[in-house]
Structure formats: structure tokens, C-alpha cells
Design a protein around this nucleic acid. Structure first.
Lengths: 136, 136
DNA sequence: ACTTGACTTGGAGTTAACTCCAGAGAGTAA
DNA sequence: TTACTCTCTGGAGTTAACTCCAAGTCAAGT
């Protein structure tokens, strides 16, 4: 697979794909004789995995570590697992924070609804006469 | 309240507090005659709110918009609410993505556990003789 | 009066993660 | 052969969000 297709398929720019490879965020992709990248199925799986992990904010650094460990072979199984466990934990924490904010926003939105209701009552505003009341 | 206390209380650097104010991420804080910031209770509530929202990644730009709308008064109630609703939606989406990654990580961790179990069986590795087997 | 320490401003520097670009080479089409 | 398109590399530029710094002010302590 050429870089253009991979770029299309995973919605990552060609520059980003080359960048990811350059910094070791995905393993080196083989080249044809002409020097052009030829992505294998496995390369694609790496791209997909990295895109997915980056998408929820796992740091590039950490993922580079993971790829490096992977390339070092079986002796790093334990370390790799620990890395994933750590990231799992981080994600849980972040989701808990987000859950709280979510609820806080819901509370705020409810209060806005009340305020807007009250304002509508006082000013005579309603979605129906919104257009006319605008210029007043 | 002086900036040092606010910084302490919310675990934001003084530089960050001044930066937030400069870009309009929190409303302008009043100064004493000598020009030194004197945070009110309300200023503190803004700091806390902004810290909380930034903590889960709401963009600075969006929050600046919110503060600006707030300062424009009651006519922006509807817009402010919509802004919050939008951010709420974004958060939900992000949390759904994170939930998927969370599960994917769990799957991967399980598979690592199996691999490690298998490796232990073959190599005789176990937590108990880990220290000795290290140098081998 | 002088020193000390906390604070001020405006502006420059940093970090993470891309994103863009110039110059060059290979492969195909007319 | 010339033109065109895709790709390559190394390096410079960008963006968001801080973070640091220099030079100066002010109030309190000695």
C-alpha cells in the first residue's frame, strides 16, 4: 500500500505518517527499490493502533516507548503490559474527571434553562417572536 | 486574596493566573492602589471553574468566548447555554472514544497476561525466582 | 535610608505535536 | 524527450498553552 492510500484510509496526512515513522511512533516501513514506502498489513495495523491511542490523548512519548519495547522482543512482555496497565489507569482517572465536569455542565445548563425561562416570562421573549423581539 | 494565596489554593502558577487574566480566560481582577491584584471570592470561583474546565481539555478559546459572553450580560444567556451544551456534547463523544480504548486496552492486557503465563511456563520464570533468574 | 521580598508589566522562550516546504528522484503518458 | 505526478528527505515553521525573565514598583522591617 502506498502512503496516499494509507493516508486516505486512516485520515492521517502523509506528513503525519512520515513524521510518526521518523520519531519511531510506528515501526519502520519497508521501501520499494525506488525508495517509496510500501505499507504491509501489519504496518497498517500499527497505524490504526497509534491513531486510536493518540486520538484519546496517550502521549507520543509513551507510545514510542511501547513500540521500542515491542521491537525488543519477548523479554519486554512484562514491561509492555505494565505500560498498558498504567495508561489504562490514567484513562480511568481522566474519565472520572470528565464525568464530574459533565455533571457540572448539566447543572449549569439546567440553571441557564431556568434563567432563560424567567427572562422570557419578564420580557415576553419566546422562540416564536424571537425574530421581532431582536431589534427592540 | 493575593496572587500567592490563589496560586497555592488552586495549584496554578502565578504566571498562569496572570496569563489567564491577560487573555481574558478569567475576568479582570481588581488591583489595590499599589497595582497589586486582590482576588475576590468571585474571582476565585472563576479561577476554580476555569481550572476545572481546562483540566478536562476544554479549549482556552472556547472558555474565553464564554467569559466574554458572560460579561456582556443577560442578552447572552441563550448563547452561553448553547456553548455549554456544545461542550457537553463534545465531552460525551470524547468519553465514548475513551471507553472504547479502555476496553481495547483491557483486551490487550489480558492477552499479555496469557503470553506471560505461557512464557513463565516454558522458561520456569515465576515472581518467586525472578531475582535469581535475572542474571541467567 | 536601605534592604528585602512580593508583586507588576511586556515580551521572549519553551514544549508537544504536528505541518509545511524546497529540492530531487522515479515512473508513466504523449 | 519532455511533462506530469507521486514520492522522498531534511529541515524550517506553526499552534496551543503555558513558562520564564528583565526591569521596575511598593511596603515593611532594621
Amino acid at each position: 500500500m502506498l502512503i496516499a492510500e494509507v493516508s486516505e484510509k486512516f485520515e492521517l496526512s502523509q506528513d503525519t505518517l512520515r513524521y510518526y515513522e521518523r520519531i519511531g511512533l510506528i515501526p519502520r516501513v519497508n521501501r520499494k527499490t525506488s525508495g517509496i514506502r510500501d505499507y504491509t498489513e501489519e504496518d497498517c495495523r500499527w497505524v490504526e493502533f497509534i491513531k486510536c491511542m493518540r486520538g484519546v490523548g496517550l502521549p507520543v512519548e509513551t507510545l514510542i516507548d511501547y513500540v521500542r519495547l515491542f521491537q525488543q522482543g519477548e523479554e519486554t512482555l512484562e514491561t509492555r503490559k505494565e505500560l498498558l496497565v498504567e495508561q489504562h489507569k490514567e484513562l480511568l482517572t481522566r474519565m472520572a474527571d470528565m464525568q464530574e465536569v459533565l455533571e457540572r455542565l448539566e447543572g449549569k445548563i439546567d440553571r441557564y434553562d431556568q434563567l432563560i425561562g424567567a427572562a422570557r416570562h419578564i420580557t415576553g421573549f419566546s422562540p416564536v417572536n424571537f425574530a421581532e423581539s431582536k431589534g427592540k
